[in-house]
């Protein structure tokens, strides 16, 4: 069986966290730093979520769109691939790929509603052009494996079905980071379950041990998520975000 995660390009191309800190030379010239990358991607992820709320697509589409965006910036510069345009385009493409097609003109319309800033405005044809560039940048790999798939089953198995909503929310938040580019989706799901069980004071050690996964990895992912929450305030500081965004053309 080959159509699973382990034979997918997503698995083969899982990145080292260090690789994600490499700033594209063109962006470096503009004074954009690795920290700016993080901030901009965080901001753009939120932008995709907001747009998605307007056009009403499933969470899966949002997750795929954000993953596309993050994949694009592992290979392409923000200078050439303006995040303000990449965001709606990734959503546009993800909607097609996940069978929830959205019209480009609808997207262009909602962009104006979500972002008052003129810089975010875009023409339909700009979206369509960017779509081609993104397809190429993604090397036409459009399938994304998400943690959601395994989540419900795992929760049930762990006897934690009552934590579904909380865990689901945790998984949603992981897309504000690059985790999906670094870890296999089921480990991200487990890390979220781990956090949920710690918060609920549920003793789950035996269950986790039986899974025969590397618990160190799971705990490390959980720590990353918790670190992210710690820095959340700092991340969502409007001034910092606009400072980073202003470095873009």
């Amino acid at each position: 069986m080959a159509a699973d995660f382990w034979t997918s390009s997503q698995f083969k191309q899982l990145l080292d966290p260090e690789e994600l800190n490499v700033v594209h030379p063109l962006d470096k010239e503009r004074g954009i730093t690795a920290e700016d990358y993080k901030l901009i991607k965080f901001h753009i992820s939120n932008y995709i979520v907001k747009l998605a709320q307007y056009i009403k697509v499933r969470q899966r589409v949002v997750a795929t769109a954000i993953t596309y965006m993050r994949r694009v910036y592992t290979r392409r510069s923000m200078t050439e691939y303006n995040p303000r345009l990449v965001a709606p385009t990734c959503l546009y493409l993800a909607a097609k790929a996940e069978e929830s097609t959205v019209q480009a003109r609808l997207l262009a319309f909602y962009i104006k509603k979500v972002q008052s800033d003129e810089k975010y405005r875009c023409e339909i044809k700009e979206i369509l052009e960017m779509e081609m560039k993104i397809l190429e940048a993604l090397n036409y790999y459009l399938v994304v494996f998400h943690p959601y798939r395994s989540l419900t089953q795992l929760l049930q198995d762990a006897g934690m079905s009552d934590s579904t909503q909380q865990t689901w929310g945790l998984v949603n938040d992981t897309y504000k980071m690059d985790l999906i580019l670094v870890h296999p989706p089921h480990l991200i799901a487990l890390a979220c379950i781990y956090i949920a069980s710690v918060q609920k004071d549920k003793e789950n050690t035996a269950w986790f041990e039986e899974l025969r996964v590397d618990m160190n990895v799971v705990k490390n992912i959980a720590m990353e998520i918790l670190d992210f929450y710690d820095s959340y305030k700092l991340m969502s500081d409007e001034n910092r975000i606009s400072a980073a965004m202003n470095k873009l053309p």
């Binding site: 493409l93 097609k96 979206i127 081609m132 036409y140």
Partner: peptide
């Protein structure tokens, strides 16, 4: 194609990249 890259092509590419047999 008023809607950019045809969804039929997206389906085909997605599926073919997924299937290795």
């Amino acid at each position: 194609e008023k809607e950019g890259f045809p969804i039929t092509a997206i389906r085909e590419i997605k599926i073919l990249k997924k299937l290795q047999h």
